[in-house]
Design a protein around this nucleic acid. Sequence first.
DNA 1: TTTTCAAGAATTTTT
DNA 2: TTCTTGAAAA
Length: 747
Amino acid sequence: MNNYLEKLNDEQKLPVLHKNGPLIVIAGAGSGKTRVLTYRIVHLINKGVDPFNILALTFTNKAATEMKKRISEIISESISKNIWMGTFHSVFARILRSEAPLIGYPTNFTIYDTYDSEKLISNIIKELQLDKDNYKAKKIRNRISSLKNNFITVDGYFKNPELLEIDKASKTEEFGKIYKEYVRRCFKACVMDFDDLLLKTNELLNKSPETLLKYQDKFKYILVDEYQDTNYSQYLIVKSLADRYENLCVVGDDSQSIYSFRGANIDNILNFRKHYPDSKSYKLEQNYRSTRNIVEAANSLINHNILKLDKTIWTNNNIGDKVILNKSLSDADEGRFISSNIFEMKSNFYLKNSSFAVLYRTNAQSRSIEDALRKINIEYQVFGGLSFYQRKEVKDILAYLRLIENINDEESLRRIINFPPRGIGQATLDKLMILSNEHDVSLFDAISKINPNTKRFSTRTIEKLENFKNLVLSFKIYSNSNNAYETTSLVINKTKLIDFYRNEGTLESSNRIENIEELLNGVNDFIQQQSEVFEGDNSLSKYLQDVALYSETDKDIHSEKVSLMSIHMAKGLEFPIVYVVGLEENLFPSIMSINSREEIEEERRLFYVAMTRAKEKLILSHCEQRFKWGNIIDCEPSRFIGEVDDKFLQRNNTNKNYITQKINENKLRLKKIPNRSFKKIKTNTISSFKKYKINININDKVYHDRFGEGKVIEIEGEGNNIRANINFKINGEKKILLKFAKLKILK
DNA sequence: TTTTCAAGAATTTTT
DNA sequence: TTCTTGAAAA
């Protein structure tokens, strides 16, 4: 045990040494917040607190892992592993896994993500025969989510005249009906959505005083990171758990509250002193991360916000370069500026790709940056957007797995009952739904309730349904005595999904096959990890639990790649060189937020977060025109640019070749750009493709790993789509995408 | 029931 | 532009 207290400055030491009772730490960007949390936990343990009695709630799983690692380095891993640490969602999912029966749920409940919930809601809207122009599934889901995050149940909704009035005014009088049915269906399917993990935890703690007491006694010390982004439900949970001992430590920065769309309530942090009158308040104001220019530029921006706690962030660091402000003609131009700038800096300062991050307001903006980086072969990694686990083929296989685990899961069943096609269409599904309501059983169990005499189903259909049922049941039995990897392999083999995609033979299906293989590798990694953990659990059930709460923020940053991500995703991270792109009105601040002062303030905080990610250099960028849905749109510079004090800015005037660039760009646009509708996971396949491109000719004899020996008949397509029609000796004629095929040319 | 095709809609951030 | 949805054809 080294002397950790020496590694803290005076203002950091105070909250670490604070003994019992509530405390709040207002920690400016880059002020060593994680360090304080880490050392406070170490200090508590040092002073005799049992690690079993500590609960630390973080914003991402990665942050938890990171903190655990740091603690392990100071004290031993055998001690630190006993601390409960994780996101609200994962910690309380874990608790619900054992306590769910107390609120009528089984322990093997499935967790729905946003997409699943929306699907279910849109089904309900259809069933209730509501006008879908008025009742948009997405909006309804958001509304349900925000009610749940404010701990307003269905009953609470119907008892609240104001809420009813709102729905009446917006012509969605039936909202309550949808909410009620949604909750009923989730319950019936043994499903919780993200918001339920918090809402049901509150229900559990309210309903069962013994359970509340049990966890109050267990978690004698509670620490909450990123407190500014907690919602009301989370506030309630923390409040009930901390009620007995009041050893609650919350850390956050009101200037970095950026999740109100997810229910985050900045009042939680602003009113902490009111909620806990006996609490002590500490401030961390010294920034260790960024140069003085960056810190002060960011300060000058955030000073435009009215709603904030009083604090002054300062730094002892070097003054550094001024913040660069770039103006480009178009989004493509902006991409080119960034890629060439990265290239230049890399060679001037011997930097790794991982020193750079490009941050944007919306995920869609990554494309122009990706294109530009790809063109000059700079490796990059995109975070967020369509994540791996949201891809169709991956979700399909997960749906099989989830159905195996929880046979009542309605959405998973709907997803795969006819995929790959087995002749069970909408009409059959509708009838099955009626049957399930009649007998009050799940969709899956409704199959067993079919009575051949009632003639609702044809014999042919009954047979198909029976086959499906038996297939799933055989998977289920197999999974009881086999691990997650073996079960997943079995599912992939028996459903012949890879063959299904192989037969399609398109570039897209090749991509899908790759992703399925990637998923299988992921399951294998999981098995490996579990084998290294004491009493590891390699069951399907454990795997699904892990996957449900995995998020893009948990993804590792690759040391040889430039990071591309939304600003939201960049929270908590830092990079030597940061580009913030698309600083234009209606984009940043978003067009959705320009109508209210509060929302503009949140956008400003978002920009503040973006700026303070940078350690050495910060480059801001905006364009005059942007390509959007096939149209060119003129863009005004963001109001935020003008709010950064000019003395910290240096305007970039490198774009001398405006006109030639514009002409070239238009030429490019006229040329049909190859279809890029699928995002790549592995960026390196592109470069390997280039090598193949030229090598193959008609009449070449080739060897393919799967199909064996064959002869090239024709070559067609362009760019990424180049395909060779090959006649294989054993497998016959097949179209192969050169981008992915590992072909050997035989002499 | 499945496949195909055309018209229409959508554009914010995520556990 | 790209994705979704719905109707018509097979």
